Simulated assay, not measured.
Amino acid sequence: MIIQTKFLGAVEIKEDAIITFPEGIPGFHDETQFALIPLNETSPFLVLQSVKNEQVGFMVATPYAFKADYAFDLVPEDVAQLAIEKPEDVFVYGILTLKDTLEQSTINLLAPIVINEQTKLAKQIVLPGEDEALLRYPLKKVAEGSAK
């Protein structure tokens, strides 16, 4: 199927790749179906794009590209809601805030996107705590080539 995207224009996606957010994303509760689209084969960045509304798209990346020791625990309710059976089925992404330069851009590590790759169920989890450094974690390290 072809969808219109915020950043990439028209893109073809497979219907079985559609990710469902049963509760939507905070601030976008009516948007429940998304596609995860790589920018290109070598970029660590992807687009989390609403399937129905081309204006709702988020640049995302795996947090581990920027903070290798990033970790959090899912509460049992989230594990059940996402039907997670094995940890290796879980993919985690952070939403980016893009600025004029990559060095000024940040990733939100306080509210990761958690996706069960097997069931295609997803949720944005708001982690407890108010660590401002995790809310706007810099991408500068990638721009400098020091991320692992």
Rank of each mutant, 00 (worst) to 15 (best):
F66V: 04
A17S: 14
L74C: 08
A10N: 14
T97V: 11
I113W: 00
L135A: 15
D89W: 08
D78W: 08
I13E: 00
V60I: 13
K67G: 04
A71F: 05
E103K: 11
I84Q: 04
G57P: 04
T101D: 02
P44E: 06
Q4S: 15
Q49Y: 07
L48A: 07
I19D: 00
A147C: 11
S146N: 10
K99Q: 14
E41I: 10
P38W: 11
Q33L: 09
P44C: 09
K141G: 15
K140W: 01
A35V: 00
K67T: 02
K120H: 13
E12P: 02
A71R: 12
P38M: 12
G27K: 01
Q4T: 10
I19W: 02
T20V: 06
K99R: 15
A71D: 11
D131L: 06
D73S: 14
H29I: 05
G129P: 10
F7K: 07
A83M: 13
V142W: 13
P26M: 03
A83L: 11
I2H: 11
Q81S: 14
S43K: 12
F72K: 08
I2Q: 15
K86I: 01
E54H: 12
P26G: 02
G24L: 02
E117Q: 15
L36T: 05
F21C: 02
G129W: 10
F34E: 01
E31S: 06
L110R: 15
V79A: 09
T32F: 01
K123G: 02
Q55S: 13
L96C: 15
D131N: 15
D69E: 14
V51F: 06
R136L: 10
F21D: 01
E130N: 14
E54Q: 13
G9C: 09
P44M: 09
E117W: 04
E77F: 10
Q118I: 14
A83D: 13
N108A: 07
V79Q: 04
A10R: 13
L134R: 09
A143I: 03
V60T: 15
V92M: 03
G9L: 10
G9D: 09
V47D: 07
I19V: 12
T42W: 09
I2W: 05
Q124C: 04
E54D: 11
T62K: 12
V75N: 12
I107Y: 00
L8D: 06
G129S: 11
P87K: 08
R136A: 14
V56R: 00
Q4W: 03
T62W: 02
L8Y: 05
Y93A: 11
E88I: 11
P63M: 04
L127G: 06
Q49P: 07
L134M: 15
V90C: 06
E103G: 03
L82E: 04
P87Q: 07
T32A: 00
A83F: 04
A122Y: 03
T101S: 14
I125C: 08
T101Q: 06
P112R: 08
Q118P: 05
F91P: 00
L96K: 00
I18N: 00
P44W: 04
G129Q: 09
S50A: 09
N116R: 08
Y137F: 15
D100F: 02
Q81T: 12
I3Y: 00
P44L: 10
Q104C: 02
L82R: 07
D131M: 08
L98R: 05
A83W: 03
V47K: 05
